[in-house]
């Protein structure tokens, strides 16, 4: 059975989903990602779904679970490249993805993760340079998908709000 490849770039893991996901493949990706986060000590996970023509409740739940898992393993997850038709359909379907942060493009997603990693690890980060003059404030528009009424996993909703909370205080 094939697997979705996971690429390591610095302290990030990159996943680009290029196939029509069946359910087992989605579940395998969850497992593989959590193992790779621990093995590599990655601080961020970037998932590109620009090739996905649909996101149904199963795939949506997989993305939520990955976000929750990676948060527990001290890594942030950003989902990038959602197609407009997919976003419209998800809203109508009533699927809210608690804890899943989104960015329109890979570049914005990297900036979002880079900005956070820089804040929490100020001394050592090569991503600083790549960031250039991009201000974290400029990313305020990339709010996470919020937990909706009756949305799934309660454990994630509290911690899933804005990126400027959470990580910085306890270091």
């Amino acid at each position: 059975m094939d697997r979705i490849p996971i690429l390591k770039m610095g302290n990030l893991l990159l996943v680009s989903i290029q196939v029509d996901l069946h359910d087992q493949l989605a579940l395998d990706l969850q497992d593989d990602l959590s193992e790779r986060i621990v093995a590599t000590g990655a601080r961020g996970v970037l998932i590109d779904i620009s090739a996905l023509e649909i996101v149904d409740s199963f795939i949506g739940r997989m993305l939520s679970t990955i976000a929750s898992l990676s948060r527990l393993l001290d890594a942030e997850t950003v989902v990038v490249g959602m197609r407009p038709a997919v976003a419209i359909t998800l809203v109508e379907l009533g699927l809210y993805m608690p804890g899943v942060r989104t960015a329109l493009t890979l570049e914005h997603g990297l900036a979002l993760l880079g900005a956070e990693v820089r804040v929490s690890r100020s001394d050592e980060d090569e991503i600083d340079d790549a960031q250039g003059d991009r201000e974290p404030d400029g990313l305020a528009g990339y709010a996470p998908v919020r937990a909706g009424p009756g949305g799934g996993e309660p454990a994630t909703t509290g911690a899933a709000s804005r990126g400027d909370g959470g990580r910085t205080g306890d270091r």
Partner: peptide, 27 residues
Amino acid sequence: RQVVRTLAVAAKLSLVDQTKMVTAASE
């Protein structure tokens, strides 16, 4: 999903409506 997409295109549904129909079919 693929079959539904093909027929949704043949019925000239808009991209958003194709996506909704394929998603419903997947569920």
